[in-house]
């Protein structure tokens, strides 16, 4: 039985459809990452599962509890770390965590030691005497994550958990999320950061325009990209025919422009494709500035399944 299940889930905001018949599952004790651009419906889905929003139609269950008919029971087993850290502006981090811990039923005997432990773990101990409104964006975001680390719910939701956080802070947050899963929590994360998804995900669901495009492990998703190799190429001068010529080379699956005089080619057998490409450039009298062979990223996965780049996708609501 999946820990989270949605069937034909629809959410409309007036005339805008945020979720369009979404079918989706999260298995118990796994980290599922929802990957999609802004406006793809990620936050809407999270808010429905957290019972903050009601779906327009369809079914959504958390640990076999219906989010519409059993919302209080659902809230008792989940915790959500919001995308925007909105706090009690005139309160300090320990006070905010104490309130959260009290409401979520953390025993009084453990509360203070747990708050201290989590504040130290998440590197907020030095900021414990600051009012929320004086915290930096990164500190406020870490405090938002800390709420869940205090609560340790069976089902934890994180909406862009490391946005606005510096690199070291990101790594700390990711490690704590993994630890939470090791302790038995099921975790759902929404992000548009590919690195975060690659680091954390057991499985990834690609969400686009309110639809589940594909769900699988990172490895399987990458394997689904035809060709298997990605060649990033930069030439010195522009050539209007180069894209077309590259597409005609044997072994080319797809070529996309990746900037001025830059291309991203999805190819089979990069080791035989690259010499053909350099030969082509030589014949066109084009100097090759750089060539880099990589494996596909989740950006490529998104591009492959939606036809659009993750970062360039427009917001639809």
């Amino acid at each position: 039985m999946p820990a989270v299940e949605t069937k034909d889930l629809v959410k409309k905001y007036g005339k805008t459809t945020a979720l369009e018949g979404l079918d989706f599952t999260v298995n118990e004790k796994e980290i599922m990452v929802l990957l999609g651009p802004n406006g793809s419906g990620k936050t809407t889905l999270l808010l429905i599962l957290a019972t903050v929003l009601k779906p327009t139609s369809g079914l959504a269950k958390v640990m076999n509890l219906d989010v519409v008919t059993q919302p209080t029971k659902v809230r008792q087993i989940l915790g959500i770390s919001f995308q925007e850290a909105r706090g009690f502006w005139r309160h300090k981090p320990p006070e905010i965590l104490r309130f959260h811990a009290t409401i979520c039923g953390v025993p009084k005997s453990k509360r203070e030691s747990l708050i201290e432990e989590v504040l130290k773990d998440i590197e907020l101990w030095d900021a414990r005497k600051k009012l929320f409104m004086h915290l930096s964006g990164g500190q406020a975001k870490r405090l938002e994550v800390a709420k869940i680390l205090i609560q340790r719910p069976p089902f934890a939701i994180f909406d862009e958990p490391s946005s606005q956080v510096d690199l070291r802070g990101k790594r700390t947050i990711w490690e704590h999320i993994q630890k939470l899963r090791e302790e038995g929590s099921t975790i759902l994360i929404a992000t548009n950061e590919v690195r975060e998804a690659e680091y954390l995900a057991d499985r990834v669901t690609v969400l686009d325009q309110g639809k589940n495009i594909v769900s699988d492990t990172v490895r399987s998703l990458k394997d689904k990209i035809a060709g298997g190799d990605v060649v990033e190429l930069q030439v010195e001068a522009s050539d209007t025919d180069l894209l077309e010529s590259l597409e005609k080379l044997a072994g080319t699956v797809k070529v996309a422009t990746a900037g001025e005089n830059q291309f991203r080619a999805y190819v089979s057998m990069a080791e035989s494709w690259v010499p053909k490409m350099t030969d082509l450039c030589y014949k066109k009298n084009l100097r090759v500035v750089s060539v880099r062979v990589t494996e596909p990223s989740l950006d490529d996965v998104f591009l492959h399944f939606t036809g659009r780049a993750l970062e360039a996708t427009p917001s639809v609501g």
């Binding site: 808010l47 019972t51 809230r75 989940l78 915790g79 919001f82 925007e84 909105r86 409401i103 039923g105």
Partner: peptide, 15 residues
């Protein structure tokens, strides 16, 4: 409007 209400609505207490 600013987002504290969604946090309160997500807490494990009846509406």
């Amino acid at each position: 409007h600013e987002g504290r209400l969604p946090y309160l609505l997500s807490l494990p207490i009846p509406r």
